[in-house]
């Protein structure tokens, strides 16, 4: 039987834009910004779901809703079978120990006034992970796990480089022995030569601790490397999801295709291709009707402008939100 760690059903998060008193008196409705719109997916134990998309697609908001750092406006979140959508902060406490997060910005994600030891020991004591006598040994082991020396324990974050800070952030998350980790662009702010170190560490630790992971990123190549399954987001919706191979080898949604083609590859070949996707990402305050992607879609038809696309299934794991894909002559047998 499959062991589902996280199940998200029709999760939505809309942000209300502040309206002026004048508009309120005129009875104008508040304008809403779409963050996440009716997103559903499941993550099984030991899986890594890669969530990709461009800025404003709602991937970070989705991650924060799952962690209950933001309150969703609709839908539900089931974590290890427990509905946490509206759980109180007190009821969440045991859950929070089970799900942790690593952030993008190595500079703002560590408290500048706390030493590494203070950060980690606080978490250990708060969640009663080990006795006080064991703290030092635990800390040393933990720092070693993320590739840091025990000398690091009594330093403040400013003494470390970006890559080392991400290691500290990872240590803080792993200190409470979570089962599920949200990694929100954990290497995007790092230099190329450091990215690979941190990514290897992340995948090693995932395997070592049997972590289930939601890996949020905008770099497709990193997502391909880390994930077992991939979900592509565009303007608050998941437009395509499948196993990593399905999405990268057999991309169906025109947006996924565009993303894949737009990425410059480190091959010494002067670009001779056409622009992958024309146009701008529409504002999340003003989402297009019909298929949200139709304004940029190279194959859009009339139906795309008017009707919301259906979620089509290509395989038990591969789903596409598109009117036109897969094409009518697509034969599921070719996968078998």
């Amino acid at each position: 039987m499959s062991d589902i760690v996280l199940e998200v059903k029709d999760l939505s998060k809309a942000f209300e834009m502040p309206r002026s008193l004048f508009d309120a008196l005129r009875g104008q409705p508040t304008r809403k910004l779409v963050g996440v719109d009716q997103v559903s997916f499941k993550i099984e134990r030991h899986e890594t779901l890669g969530l990709v998309g461009e800025s404003g697609c709602g991937k970070t908001t989705l991650g924060r809703c799952i962690l209950r750092l933001q309150q969703p406006t609709g839908g539900s979140i089931l974590f290890e079978g427990q509905d946490i959508t509206r759980a109180s902060e007190r009821d969440l406490q045991p859950v929070r120990r089970r799900m942790q997060v690593v952030f993008q910005d190595p500079y703002s994600s560590l408290n500048p006034r706390m030493t590494v030891r203070q950060m980690i020991v606080e978490a250990l004591r708060f969640h009663k992970i080990c006795s006080r006598a064991e703290e030092d040994a635990y800390l040393e082991r933990l720092l070693k796990t993320v590739g840091l020396n025990i000398d690091a324990a009594d330093k403040f974050p400013r003494a470390f480089s970006g890559g080392q800070r991400q290691r500290i952030g990872l240590a803080r998350a792993l200190a409470v022995q979570p089962a599920f980790l949200v990694a929100d662009e954990p290497v995007s702010a790092l230099d190329v030569s450091i990215q690979a170190q941190v990514l290897n560490l992340l995948t090693d630790l995932r395997d070592e601790f049997g972590l289930t992971m939601l890996f949020i990123a905008h770099e497709l190549s990193i997502v391909r490397h880390v994930s077992t399954r991939v979900a592509v987001m565009y303007l608050g919706q998941i437009v395509e999801t499948g196993t990593t191979d399905e999405v990268f080898e057999n991309a169906q949604h025109p947006y996924t295709e565009g993303l894949l083609r737009a990425l410059p590859r480190p091959e010494p070949k002067r670009r001779d291709r056409k622009i992958a996707l024309e146009g701008d990402i529409p504002s999340p305050m003003n989402v297009p009707k019909g298929c949200r992607f139709h304004t940029r879609c190279p194959i859009a038809q009339e139906i795309c402008r008017t009707k919301t696309p259906p979620l089509r299934q290509l395989s038990p794991t591969h789903h596409v939100l598109c009117h036109l894909r897969p094409t009518p002559d697509w034969n599921p047998a070719i996968l078998a």
């Binding site: 924060r64 962690l67 750092l69 902060e89 969440l92 406490q93 045991p94 859950v95 929070r96 120990r97 799900m99 942790q100 997060v101 952030f103 993008q104 910005d105 703002s108 994600s109 560590l110 408290n111 500048p112 006034r113 706390m114 606080e122 978490a123 708060f126 969640h127 952030g169 803080r172 998350a173 409470v176």
Partner: peptide
């Protein structure tokens, strides 16, 4: 809005601890 405050929230710390121990020194 800083991520270290989000991290403290994600660790389940209560509000008074986050305010006075994590935010006020900064």
């Amino acid at each position: 809005q800083q991520e270290y405050i989000l991290a403290a929230q994600a660790l389940g710390y209560n509000r008074m601890r986050i305010i006075f121990r994590h935010a006020v020194p900064n």
